[in-house]
């Protein structure tokens, strides 16, 4: 089993203010007419209309993580990693999750979000589904180990949130992962 160093990073998410903005769009008017006789002319009239684009406001707040740096739970939780196009837990992942389950039992007020990720290869949309299954694999195992399902939620980022950005197997293997984030205390 690989012992990795855990870096603590609980980052409070900034609340995102989505400001109202609007802009007026100038319509371009193109009129079309059929020419039948040479140089036949007619007098088309222009229509102009205006549309405004207005954004709704939204506020989001929560706890997030940066990159693949994980939850502060003493010493022991890392991302767990997966093989290409697979969502089955590897044995090293099961060990990690056992420690996480124990920690959650010792810290009953903590809820967790599990984010499933994929590497950049393959269909982006299929990878969204695969990320969901990867997150769910960890969730199921934690529940099997006695963690209440109410304390766990899952999310998939597909291949949209890589922790490493070069196109090498080394990097891809780091991106096929589940991240864990504390969502409440």
């Amino acid at each position: 089993m690989k012992a990795a160093k855990v870096i603590l990073a609980l980052v409070l998410a900034a609340s995102l203010m989505f400001a109202f903005t609007s802009c007026t769009c100038k319509p371009g008017d193109i009129e079309e007419e059929k020419i039948t006789q040479p140089e036949a002319m007619s007098t088309p009239s222009a229509i102009s209309s205006q549309s405004e684009i207005v954004k709704p406001a939204a506020v989001t707040a929560g706890v997030i993580m940066v990159g693949n740096r994980i939850v502060d739970i003493g010493d022991k939780v890392y991302p767990i990693y997966f093989d290409f196009d697979k969502s089955e837990l590897r044995s090293d992942s099961r060990n990690t999750l056992s420690e996480l389950a124990q920690w959650m039992k010792n810290n009953p007020s903590v809820d967790l979000r599990i984010d499933g990720h994929c590497d950049e290869r393959g269909s982006n949309e299929y990878n969204l589904a695969l990320g969901e299954t990867r997150a769910d694999s960890a969730r199921k195992y934690l529940v099997y180990l006695g963690v209440s399902p109410d304390r766990l939620e899952t999310m998939s980022y597909g291949e949209e949130k890589p922790s490493c950005s070069s196109s090498t197997e080394d990097c891809w293997s780091k991106n096929r992962r589940d991240d864990f984030t504390i969502t409440s205390k």
Partner: peptide, 20 residues
């Protein structure tokens, strides 16, 4: 800030106008 850019060409086509 969160905004959608104006999209003249999009609007344009639809405001396209009377076809003579």
């Amino acid at each position: 800030k969160n905004k959608i850019q104006s999209f003249p060409n999009l609007i344009l086509t639809t405001c396209v106008l009377i076809l003579f």
